[in-house]
Amino acid sequence: MTGASVLDAPRRPDADRGFGRSGAGSPFVRLLARRLLMAIPLLLAVSVLVFLLLELMPGDPARNQAGMDASEEQVEAVRRRMGLDKSPVERYFGWLFGIFRGDLGRSSVSGQSVVDMLGDRAPVTLELVTLAFAVSLLIAIPVALMAARRPGGIFDRTVMVVSMTMLAVPNYVLAMLLVLVFAIMLRMLPAIGFVPLEEGLLPNLRSVLLPVLALAVPLAAFYTRFLRGDLVEQMNAADYIDTARAKGVGPWLVLWLHAFRNSSFGLLTIVGLNIGTLVGGTVIIEQIFAMPGMGMMMLEGAMSRDVAVVQMCVFVFAAVAILANLFVDLMYAVLDPRIRYGSH
């Protein structure tokens, strides 16, 4: 990993931090360019990894497909149809070159073009994830700020208890409870199904509200706790906060301008982490609410070794995660000038 020399040498405070030297070119642009360039081999590496994993999975998807009472002949026919009679190398490169030609492939199960499938399903997952992300932050940030204002106070304690509860509940149990209360008992919201935007904004929002809540609430709980903890720690430990207070700056301002700014690092980090897993982790929620999204598409594809489908889903998820993390890193630089310019 690292040579001994790098670690043992006494550190110079203004050593290059890898974020750009003063001088040639804006540090942002260089960072952006470099990271985007690195994204390509990264995505390729991910695609190879996916392919290998799919190959390693035991079982015969052709036989799976064909079912119990299929004859050998029928299984072979299914195998041919799924393209599984070709060698793994052939299949991978066949897929890869197809991508360059612009042919994203077809599902080996249904024969549908992957582009069409994505077109149907990506908006669903995208909407779920975006709304969940937004809602979770919309809840977490204000609540954490208010709680950190008076650590140990009633509001803080309530927040702690409630967020703890929400964290401990698996999101599918929460989903079922939400359905129980809002769909069955109160009949206010639908239990399943996705209403596309074309059919109206309100019906669409009604159909995604429960799944979004099921996704967002545990996240919000996590962010709230983390942020609140970090804020309180900030306020206890940091010199500049005491300085600010000594200067007579009000507590809210202290919180917002200083403590939050620093805590946002940590928050950004975990949010960035979560975007990647959030996108792939909507499967269970999509299942429960019968949302025709990419999570289900990927799961079914993985189970039947539908290479084209899984690769495309993984590609999209990976791209989203990479972009999200890139954004996080950029935000680091924005938020802390010390990192941006490598000096203090």
Partner: peptide, 18 residues
């Protein structure tokens, strides 16, 4: 015909009137 993820979800959906 609506596909749902298992018996429990089907039962809930029926109860919810959907």
């Amino acid at each position: 015909f609506q596909s749902v993820a298992g018996d429990q979800v089907a039962y809930q959906t029926l109860q919810a009137g959907q």
